[in-house]
């Protein structure tokens, strides 16, 4: 039963190595590109960075939540291109693959400008990866969030405070104090209609006036992350 071709790993090995959820027996459709980035992640930071190797760093997530993303960036002050981006993560297979892909997208062809790099949406990473299982999209959202933090830290560091963008949360259901951010997360976790959303968040139950806006947000985030 031994597979002597497994040394070293090749892309074709990875194509055959589909992973099956041990509990649900559901097959995860990890694309060959996802596997390539998982087994050979690009732009990893493996050693302590030198003092001026990077201009800024951004960290999001928590170990308790199961994902931590740490991103370092080096920016050319004249062109505002990202000349280097390195990362570390405590995360699952798709978090590693998505961050690796994100790092490639930001740094390829001499690097994107900060303005363009900030436009990268989870959907774009997904497309480049050849898709991710829907419920795993959550993980890749961390890469752009950590990057956004790093860029904000960069703007602070160079005194361009006016360019710092903080994604503000807006209260949608005043009774339950539920924000658009909560709804975004719930969509990512699979609540794609009002019923599932209410099961998850109890949003709009005590505040029926909020329901039209909740439904609109579900549609918006569904489109943003799942493209439909």
């Amino acid at each position: 039963m031994e597979d002597t071709n497994a040394k070293p790993l090749t892309t074709s090995d990875m194509q055959t190595a589909d992973v099956v959820n041990p509990h649900t027996k559901q097959k995860w459709a990890y694309s060959p590109i996802v596997k390539e980035h998982f087994f050979h992640p690009k732009n990893l930071l493996l050693e302590e960075p030198a003092p001026d190797q990077f201009d800024a760093r951004g960290t999001v997530g928590s170990p308790a939540c199961g994902d931590v993303m740490d991103i370092w960036i080096k920016v050319d002050p004249a062109t505002e291109r990202v000349v280097d981006l390195k990362w570390k993560t405590f995360g699952c297979g798709s978090a590693i693959a998505a961050t690796s892909m994100f790092s490639v997208m930001v740094t390829e062809n001499d690097g994107l400008t900060l303005t363009d790099a900030l436009k990268i949406k989870p959907q774009d990473i997904m497309e480049r990866l050849g898709g991710l299982p829907n419920r795993k999209i959550h993980c890749s959202v961390l890469a752009d969030k950590a990057f956004r933090k790093a860029v904000n830290n960069y703007f602070h560091a160079v005194g361009k405070h006016d360019r710092v963008e903080v994604e503000g949360a807006r209260v949608i259901d005043a009774r339950m104090n539920i924000t658009d951010k909560d709804i975004e997360e719930a969509v990512l976790e699979g609540a794609l209609n009002l019923e599932d959303m209410q099961k998850k968040l109890k949003v709009g139950v005590g505040d029926p006036a909020a329901i039209p806006e909740i439904e609109q947000l579900i549609r918006f985030y569904k489109e943003k992350y799942f493209g439909a």
Binding site: E2, P22, G66, F90, G93, A95, I96, R135
Partner: peptide
């Protein structure tokens, strides 16, 4: 380390196991 990432690597070497990580549950 995160269990699912470990699981995927072990699988690459032929080993089937399971994890209590959030990432592997539906």
């Amino acid at each position: 380390i995160e269990g699912e990432a470990a699981l995927l690597y072990m699988d690459e070497f032929g080993i089937s196991l399971s994890t209590g990580s959030a990432c592997t549950s539906t």
